[in-house]
Amino acid sequence: MSNKKVSMQTIADYLNISKVTVYKALNNQQYVSDDLKEKILRAAQELGYYKVSGKNLALNNNLAFVVPKRFFLENEGFYTSIFYYLNNFCHNDGLALTLYVINNSDESNCTLPATLNSGSCDGIFIAGEMTDDYIHGIGDLGLPVLLIDFYKPSFNYDCIIADNFFNGFTITNYLIEKGHTDIGFVGNPSQTSSISDRFYGYQKALAAHNLPYNPDWHLVNNNLTTGVYTLETPLPKTLPTAFVCHCDRAAYFLIQRINMEGLKVPADISVACFDNTNLAENSNPPLTTVDISTKTIAKNSYSQLRSRIKDNSLSKQRIYIPCNIVERSSVANIKKII
C-alpha cells in the first residue's frame, strides 16, 4: 500500500459498500451479517487500517445535534443554549459538533440529512421530541443516540431530562402556598412528553389539595406544527388567579395577552413557568420559573454519549437533572390580601 491515509471511506470504496456499514462492522454493531463483517475486517487489515485498541474507537471525532425547527426558532433560547454548551465541550476535546435543524416536511417524510447518512459522525444527540418514525430512521443508522429533554418508552436510548412531573407538582404547589386556589395551565400535553408530565404534575398538585381542574382555564397559545406563539388565544370570561405555563415563552405571550385585556401581572393574575431562559429574566415582570439548567443538561448529555460511544453494551440510562424554583415578581402572595 502507499503512504496515503486509509480511512473507513477507503474500505467502503474498496468493497463498494457504504461507510455506515464499515463503521458498524469495525465497531461490532448489529445489522451487519457475520460474513460481511468478516469481509470488512479482512479488507481493513489488507489495506492497512488499524483501530485503536479498545471498544468502539474507530471514530470520526464528529458528533451530530439534531433538533426540530419548531424548537430552534431565532428567538428561542432553551435548545440553542444546550447546543452552545455542547459545542464548547466538543471543541475543548477536539471534536466537531454538526447542527442539523430539521424542518416539518423532512420530519414528516422521514428525510434524513445526506451527511448524517454518510457515516461521518460517531453519535447523535436528538434535542426536542420528534416523530417516532424519524427517530426510527436515525436509529437505523446504527449509531449511539441520546435523547435530550424528552423520553420515549418505546425506544431504548439514553436520555437526559428534568423530572417534569415533579417540577409540575412543585410549581403548582408553590402557587397554592401563595394562596392561589384557582389555577389554570397553558400548554398542550400531546405536544411533548415534557409538557405532558408538567401538566399531570400540575393536576396532581390540585388533587392533593382537593382543588378542581377547570378545563376552561386550560389554554394553548402556540402552533403545534411551527412552534410559533400567538397573542390571539381567547381568554375565558372568568379567569383564574394564576396560571402555570409550560415554558417561559408561553408565559411571556400569556402576559402580553393579559395586558391586552387591561389586566396586570401579578396584580390581577399570577404567572409561573419552566426553563429559566434569558426571556424569564428580561420579561416584564420578570418570571418566577423552574430553573432547568441547559449547561447541566449539556454536560450530562455530552458525558453520557461519549461513554455510550466507547461501550455501546452498557445499560441505557434515564438521567434526571436537579431543578429549583427561581422566584421573581410574576407571582403575588394573595394570602396577604385575604
Rank of each mutant, 00 (worst) to 15 (best):
M1D: 02
S2D: 10
T10Y: 01
V22E: 05
K24F: 03
N27A: 09
Q29C: 10
Y31K: 15
S33Y: 04
L36T: 13
E38Y: 00
A44N: 00
E46Q: 15
Y50H: 13
K51H: 01
S53C: 05
N61L: 11
F65P: 07
V67E: 03
K69G: 02
F72E: 11
L73M: 14
E76C: 05
G77A: 14
F78Y: 15
F78G: 11
T80W: 06
T80P: 14
F83H: 13
H91I: 04
H91C: 02
N92L: 13
A96V: 01
L97S: 10
Y100L: 14
N104S: 15
D106C: 10
D106T: 03
C110S: 13
T111A: 04
S120A: 14
F125A: 06
I126E: 04
I126T: 01
G128A: 08
D132N: 10
G137I: 00
G137W: 02
D140P: 03
G142L: 11
L146F: 07
L146M: 09
D149K: 03
S154K: 12
S154V: 13
Y157T: 01
C159F: 06
I161N: 10
F165H: 14
K178F: 02
H180D: 05
H180Q: 02
T181C: 04
D182H: 10
D182N: 09
G184D: 04
G184P: 08
F185W: 01
V186I: 12
G187R: 08
G187P: 09
N188A: 12
S190C: 05
S193W: 02
I195S: 11
I195Y: 05
S196W: 01
D197R: 14
D197M: 07
D197A: 12
R198F: 04
F199R: 09
G201F: 10
Y202V: 09
K204P: 00
A205T: 02
A205V: 04
L206M: 13
N210H: 15
N214P: 07
P215S: 11
N221I: 09
N222F: 15
L224R: 12
G227M: 04
V228W: 00
Y229I: 02
P234A: 11
T238E: 12
C245Q: 11
H246I: 09
D248P: 07
R249T: 14
A250I: 00
A251G: 03
F253E: 13
Q256L: 15
I258G: 11
G262F: 07
P266W: 09
S270N: 06
C273M: 09
T277K: 06
A280P: 05
N282E: 14
P285V: 07
P285H: 09
D291W: 03
S293H: 11
K295W: 07
I297K: 10
Q304N: 05
L305I: 14
S307E: 11
I309G: 02
S315N: 14
Q317S: 12
R318C: 12
I319A: 04
Y320S: 06
Y320C: 13
P322H: 07
V326S: 08
E327G: 01
R328H: 06
S330F: 02
V331R: 06
V331L: 07
I337P: 01
I337Q: 09
I337K: 07
